[in-house]
Nucleic acid binder design. Structure first.
Length: 191
DNA sequence: GAATCGATGGTCT
DNA sequence: GACCATCGATTCT
């Protein structure tokens, strides 16, 4: 398994979102590795995408979407939940992929402790849950997931899953093109 | 199983 | 001052 390099993220956001399915998200905290297989993503494009944080140009919050591909973009929604995104497209062009759900693979005990739920099914089957289980917070904004010493990174997968494409979740006025990608067979997809 | 609703704070106009 | 790329508890069918 090899770590995804910057060139992987420096592509069309929809392509990256699709190709991330089946890949392995890893996060090293306190000497422990947490890892999960990505099973659900959403693509958020540049200023032309009405649902993207980039729609109002490079504001303080969204500026990182124009930064180098592979950067970590975390934001808080509804005052409670943090969302993990990976920046895409060449530097200077805005784009990011939201990691919506993973299948937990390593560090299950730590995830259970952080999530405080009994059913493993609800450990990481939603974007807020993924962040809570992994311990990803706003403080992780600006990490470079392609750096050699990055605590958060992605490894390629060996089994590209059957992909289902749908409209994005929670988006009020979405575009016609489907920009949510799900591993059709995974029980860990969000509900 | 589906629908409803409150919690809670960073960000932008 | 309003708006959210959500979750979980509660309240129905």
């Amino acid at each position: 398994m090899t770590k995804l390099q910057r060139s992987f993220f420096a592509r069309d956001t929809r392509r990256v979102a699709r190709d991330l399915l089946g890949c392995r998200l890893a996060y090293d905290v306190d000497g422990t590795r947490l890892a999960g297989r990505i099973v659900e993503t959403e693509a958020y494009l540049g200023p032309e995408d009405p649902a993207s944080h980039a729609r109002h140009g490079p504001t303080d919050r969204a500026r990182i979407m124009w930064d180098r591909p592979g950067m970590v973009y975390v934001y808080r929604i509804y005052g409670i939940h943090d969302m993990l995104n990976l920046v895409t497209e060449a530097k200077g062009q805005a784009g990011a992929v939201l990691v919506r759900a993973v299948e937990p693979l390593e560090g299950l005990e730590e995830m259970r402790a952080r999530r405080g739920v009994e059913d493993d099914r609800s450990l990481t089957d939603g974007p807020g849950k993924v962040c809570q289980a992994f311990g990803v917070t706003l403080d992780d904004r600006g990490l470079d997931a392609t750096a050699d010493d990055a605590p958060l990174f992605v490894q390629d997968g060996d089994d590209p899953p059957a992909v289902e494409a749908t409209g994005r979740i929670g988006v009020v006025e979405d575009v016609a093109e489907p920009r949510r990608f799900v591993d059709a067979a995974s029980p860990w997809r969000s509900r």
